[in-house]
């Protein structure tokens, strides 16, 4: 499982690196325009592509850390068993949403991989590939979470009380 930790760390550093690159590239644009009276057309495109990657990779990392904005008031009103059932149904629904992103993302990749962006000539498909990629790993994390719901159930059944 150590390799997973390394992979997560690598993804974190890569995401941080992309944001740093964005900050540098956009800043170059400001400086270039004012100091050298020049603007690079690739600048806007490449920083925007990095941004979409930061958004979807960041969403994956946020998923791992359970940081996505949600509403837990209704669930909190339920008794313990109800909470578990609701969480289970909620996870199934989320899996549905992720499957939409995976299937739609793959289709969209194939549609757009033939379409190069005007300034950088990077095919849009390469940029769009980040959606099915993140969604796939979110799905794996979701499966792990769901298994844990049942494992906790079992522990409690055996008399484990750590609340």
């Amino acid at each position: 499982m150590k390799i997973l930790l390394y992979a997560e760390r690598a993804l974190e550093l890569f995401t941080a690196f992309l944001l740093a690159c964005m900050a540098i590239i956009v800043f170059i644009n400001v400086v270039a325009r004012y100091v050298f009276d020049k603007a690079f057309p690739w600048n806007e495109e490449i920083s925007l592509f990095m941004f979409t990657w930061v958004v979807f990779l960041g969403a994956l990392l946020a998923f791992k850390r359970h940081r996505h904005l949600g509403l837990d008031i209704v669930i909190n009103l339920l008794p313990n068993l109800g909470k578990k059932v609701a969480a289970f149904i909620g996870n199934i629904l989320m899996a549905g949403a992720l499957l939409i992103l995976i299937q739609g993302g793959i289709k969209f990749y194939f549609q757009t991989v033939v379409w190069p962006a005007p300034a950088t000539q990077i095919p849009y498909g390469y940029v769009n590939a980040v959606v099915p990629f993140s969604a796939f790993f979110m799905l794996l994390l979701l499966i792990k979470d769901t298994v844990e719901i049942f494992q906790k159930e079992k522990n409690e059944g055996e008399g484990g009380t750590q609340c």
């Binding site: 974190e12 690196f17 944001l19 740093a20 958004v55 979807f56 990779l57 960041g58 969403a59 990392l61």
Partner: peptide
């Protein structure tokens, strides 16, 4: 810096994902 960058990236990803 890496942690600061990562934190900003994840916080904004949460907003941007919505």
């Amino acid at each position: 810096l890496p942690e600061i960058l990562l934190d900003a990236a994840i916080s904004s990803a949460v907003v941007m994902f919505v």
